[in-house]
Design a protein around this nucleic acid. Structure first.
Lengths: 341, 341
DNA sequence: TAAAAGTGATAAAACGTTTTATCAAAAATG
DNA sequence: CATTTTTGATAAAACGTTTTATCACTTTTA
């Protein structure tokens, strides 16, 4: 089976036919007699013929590759989605080429430029501020794009993500209904629409419960501080706000870091401090007394995104620019937010 | 900047030169005068020329794409490695196309066949029993391959992975030195060399400490049982072995599941049962009293693997088939294995 | 039975590059 | 000044496909 790669031309020679005939047979086009068809198919199979994707790509302009641009591939959230996307794509014969941006705009630009060297048929991208032009460019060049986990507020580009505002609203509302009064917010100092929407959800929930927002209860953790430093500043924040009886973390990463901080401060959850984190995670279910979380529907998000993209690449016409899915999340209630006596 | 893609031919027309000249200038070959060179470079830059990778690939047989075949991209271990691999590859202008096998041999075969349709220049693969032929085929076709996280005992293929035997040995030895007598092993019923090496490490450590192996203390969790079922069977195993005072989990996944089981059984760690898990994980550092783990050097593994691959693809000759890195791990001692009084 | 329609197969162009071989003009050599 | 060498540029082939247009031959139609 150790075969030098065989080409359509070789098969033609082997079967005393022409290149065209072989191509037609292999693609089920044209009109070729049963016998010749069989002969060609046999020879192709016996020699393990595989079309040269480069040649096909050059000729047809189709690569059967999807570009997946995410913030970071590690981590449970994108990891889970990548898996779903890969599986679905494979069913239609697409492969995934993936790149991460690490929330770095220049990296994002580079990655998109690279991918756009006619080597990718469509994109799933987690957007960041600053990438608007680049992504519009892709669309202008007729490449389907689906945004995931974020969106551009002023642009009509199909996207699918969790209902950030509603999820945060529900979480904070849940805390208030459970009797917590002074609810803090810990978020990241990143210019991401997701975080803004979550913050809005927090504020709107307070408002809906007639609670005045206290600016001192909101903490924005600077980006790219190292972990120990970050934990220390979160600890400092928690200690400063003595009256705070619950805290809402806007991301998975912040939540686990918060957990570490609370642990180091030797505070009891939920007695001294209740907490909720965005994004479920194995830690949150295991760590006593269990941390209440907002579980993102990763499967639905990923599935919708890839379906949307495949539909577009499958030649579906129609204007997709208005397709904007906001998928509801699920609040997983655990011990960290028991109703206050 | 919304440019229809421009080709080398267009540039030639725009500058009143020939295709060859443009190609030479763009690739720094041939002998072209300063002025023409400048003119072409200017036009190319202004129009945002990007070479068509398909055409280049077809002509040169080089795709500048690396295939990464892993068990599953989710999860901290492969996630972390994927990141490193992607970053290093990018420095040399390579992109990553990734596929997961989910420990399914057929899927692995399919994936490799797909990638080998002349669309990938080299491979990093986590091997599984049954893929020997397929991978040897790649090598026979002159494609560089580096195995990661596993290897084929009977084949000379470059690979890099943690020192599984030594790591497991150290872990179990650590337990024995800390005063634990009856040490259990929980592993997965998968035919993976990694797990076998770890199991050997466990057994050899017992032997080295003159302890007779007790078959009843070894539990192989059947593959693909669902999580709840798995937890229940682990619980049953733990309850059955009353004399067992410590347990060694051979993977991350098993470790967290074990943690859940122990939690449900309301056993105290380490008083009722000490534990060590292979593969560090955020849960293990957070979960009280802290779980002792074997921390795999993901960075070194990934870095070595990609370096090895890039070197081969960079035209490095020489026989690499004997390159076999076994990188030592680090035992992170935490509260789950305190010295027995 | 002559014209029209259908059948089975193919030649050749095209996709966008890279690269070899070639060529004319200019410069250097004897 | 005739010859060789160097310089700067290019034509054309090739990579492996897909696809359009064409062709010879058979069958159907009028």
């Amino acid at each position: 089976m150790i075969n030098k790669k065989i080409s359509i031309k070789d098969i033609a020679k082997l079967t005393n036919t022409s290149i065209t005939t072989v191509s037609f047979v292999l693609n089920g086009k044209g009109r070729i007699s049963k016998e010749i068809t069989k002969k060609i198919l046999d020879v192709a199979a016996k020699n393990g013929y595989e079309p040269n994707r480069m040649a096909v790509g050059l000729r047809t302009g189709v690569s059967k590759v999807i570009g997946l641009v995410v913030e970071t591939i590690g981590g449970p959230f994108f990891g889970a989605m990548a898996k779903v996307i890969e599986e679905e794509a494979e069913k239609e014969g697409y492969r995934i080429i993936y790149c991460s941006t690490n929330n770095n705009i220049q990296k994002g630009k580079d990655v998109i430029r690279m991918l756009s060297q006619q080597l990718v048929d469509g994109y799933i991208v987690t957007p960041m501020k600053g990438l608007e032009k680049d992504i519009q460019n892709l669309i202008a060049n007729e490449k389907p794009v689906v945004l995931i986990d974020g969106y551009f507020p002023d642009l009509d580009i199909p996207h699918v993500l969790v209902d950030n505002h509603g999820s945060a609203f529900n979480a904070v509302d849940h805390l208030l209904k459970a009797g917590y009064k002074k609810i803090g917010l810990i978020t990241a100092d990143l210019d991401l629409i997701q975080l803004q929407d979550r913050t809005r959800g927090y504020k709107d929930a307070l408002k809906a419960n007639n609670i005045k927002e206290d600016k001192k209860l909101v903490f924005k953790l600077p980006f790219d501080t190292d972990k120990d430093k970050a934990i220390n500043s979160v600890k400092a924040f928690i200690q400063q706000q003595k009256q705070m009886d619950a805290v809402f973390f806007t991301t998975n990463y912040l939540g686990t870091m918060g957990l570490e901080s609370i642990k180091q401060l030797e505070l009891n959850i939920p007695h001294d401090l209740a907490m909720i984190s965005f994004d479920d995670n194995e830690i949150f279910s295991l760590y006593p007394p269990g941390i209440t979380t907002i579980q993102q529907p990763t499967y639905e998000i990923a599935k919708s995104a890839i379906d949307l993209l495949l539909a577009q690449m499958g030649g579906e016409k129609g204007d997709v620019s208005k397709i904007k899915y906001q998928i509801p999340s699920k609040l997983i209630e655990r011990g960290s937010t028991v109703t206050k006596k």
